[in-house]
Every structure is written in C-alpha cells, then in structure tokens.
C-alpha cells in the first residue's frame, strides 16, 4: 500500500529562522507543464526589512571572524550540498531541467562552493598592498567587506546562479539578503536549509522568495544596504535599482555570465564587494637627528 507523502512547506529564511512570510501571502509558479511547483512565500516589504535587520546584526561577527573560519564554514556548505545532492537534482528536474543538466548544475555548485571556500583566507593576500609612501610612515591597504549586500539572483537558474553570485559576497565577510529566482525558487529554499545546517551563523545569508519587482524596490531603496549585486538580465530593472541606489550611494554590480560554465567564477567577484582601507602610522626613526640640522 502506498504511503501518503508529506509535502514540503516552502519557507523563507531570515536570521537563521524559517518563517512563513509575515504577509501570509503565497504564489504558485508553474513548471513547464503548467503544473504548480508549490505554494511559495510571496515575501513582503516587511520581510525584506526584517532580513536586512538580520543581515546587519550578523555583519559584525561574520566580518570579524577569522578568514580561516569563514573558509571552514564554506567548505561545510559544500559538504552539506553533497549530502543533499539528490534532493537538488530532483528539484531541478521538477523545475524543468534534464537529469544530466541537473546533475551537472548541482556538481558545479558544489565545486564552486569549494572554490570560494578556498579563497576565504587568500584574496586578502593577493589584493592587499604595502604602500611605499615618501614620508616616515608605514602605510598599508587591506580589503574590508562593504557591509550588507542585496543580491538579486539570476532568474534563469534555480541553484547555480544563486550560489555563484552569493558565495563571493559572503566569502569576503559581507552578509546578504538574497531574492531568489522568481519562477525557479525551489532550490533557493532548499539551499537555505543547507546553510542552516552548515554552521553559517543566522543572518549571514537571508533568502526571500517572491515577485522581484516588489522586492527589488525595497532592497535597493533601503538605507542600510551598502551594495547591490544584480544577477538578472532586465536592463530596465537594473536601471531602476541603480537610480534607487543613489539614496545612500550604494555600490551596484551586475553580472551577466553563463553560470553553468566552469570558469564563471573569480577573485574579482570577491573584490567587487570589498572596500579598500588604507592605514597610516608613523615610523619612529631612532638613531640621531634626521632633520636638516
């Protein structure tokens, strides 16, 4: 006798918790055959706000955490992804992928996670500098995370796009609020479950589902978001985001890459959401007068 299956409730992910949207609304994106994928949370402006508050709260300890430790956590994400591989493949197939493509996408997502995990304690060394100023000062420039980053995940993939643009952001010590692909949201929700079981502190990554138009607006106008990473391909939407970003001089980066390609990953995606901080300190010159007398 067949057993009655327990259906999954798709939730959003804020501050390490899995609430339903505070609005109580949902939407039902359809698969290729026109069948609803499920009841997906239609997040509201308030959900975005809550997510940003959670991200800001998590920023201090995440950005100050040892780079090695951030790396460990990213490696852990890869391990958890590996363990959930079958679920992701099934969801990708449910959202229209072929089995082969789905497998490749999940595999690449895992490889990419390992790639950025490895960068966590290295990008600083490659991109920092000691600057030979002409005065008697020691001067060095280091990278620091920009802060809270709003991420609009690519629309045309469910998993690899989100992974590809989110990882460089948190690898660099930022925290983020991710708006998942509107029509392919399933993997984003499952990915939140992976994060939750990977020692990623609550609030470092917050994932919302819903209509992009509504959420983009709130995210890009919010005064406590420092940067926006745009993975979509709607130039009008991008322009609107850029205009909204003026409110608090947000940095806006947009990427249009084929995320399914193995080399759609690099160091400079990490440095985009980094600030350069330069510090000066005098060097005492002992051993006699160095003045003109």
């Amino acid at each position: 006798m067949s057993r009655l299956e327990i259906l999954k409730t798709y939730k959003i992910y804020i501050g390490g918790q899995f609430p339903r949207t505070e609005s109580g609304r949902f939407y039902s994106p359809l698969d290729k055959k026109g069948k609803p994928l499920g009841n997906i949370c239609l997040s509201s402006r308030k959900d975005v706000r809550n997510a940003i508050v959670a991200a800001r709260k998590a920023f201090g300890s995440w950005s100050e955490r040892a780079a090695f430790n951030r790396g460990q956590i990213l490696y852990r994400i890869a391990e958890m992804l590996e363990g959930r591989k079958e679920q992701f493949i099934a969801e990708l197939i449910q959202q229209g992928s072929t089995k082969k493509n789905a497998e490749e996408e999940v595999n690449l997502s895992i490889e990419r996670t390992v790639y950025y995990a490895g960068w966590c304690d290295k990008y600083q060394q490659v991109l920092s500098s000691v600057n030979p100023v002409a005065s008697s000062h020691f001067n060095f420039s280091v990278l620091e995370p920009t802060g809270v980053v709003g991420i609009l995940a690519p629309q045309n993939t469910s998993l690899i796009g989100l992974v590809s643009i989110m990882l460089p952001v948190i690898c660099g010590g930022n925290t983020c609020v991710v708006i998942a692909s509107e029509n392919l949201p399933l993997c984003a929700v499952t990915f939140a479950e992976v994060l939750n079981s990977s020692d990623v502190p609550g609030g470092v990554v917050n994932i919302l589902t819903g209509t992009n138009k509504e959420l983009n607006e709130t995210l890009s106008t919010h005064m406590d978001v420092n940067a926006i990473v745009y993975g979509g391909d709607d130039l009008e939407a991008l322009k609107q985001i850029q205009e909204n970003s003026v409110l608090n001089v947000k940095r806006v980066f947009s990427y249009s890459k084929d995320w399914n390609k193995a080399d759609s990953q690099d160091l400079y995606m990490i440095s985009d959401t980094q600030e350069i901080k330069t510090t000066w300190h005098p060097i005492e010159n002992i051993g006699g007068s160095s003045s003109s007398y």
């Binding site: 008697s136 000062h137 005098p282 060097i283 005492e284 010159n285 002992i286 160095s290 003045s291």
Partner: peptide, 11 residues
C-alpha cells in the same frame, strides 16, 4: 612623544 609628529612640528 611621537617622534615623527615632533619632526613635522619642527619643520
């Protein structure tokens, strides 16, 4: 006393 600061002041 910071010596570099003193040198700047003296200059």
């Amino acid at each position: 006393i910071d010596k570099v600061g003193v040198e700047e002041r003296v200059a």
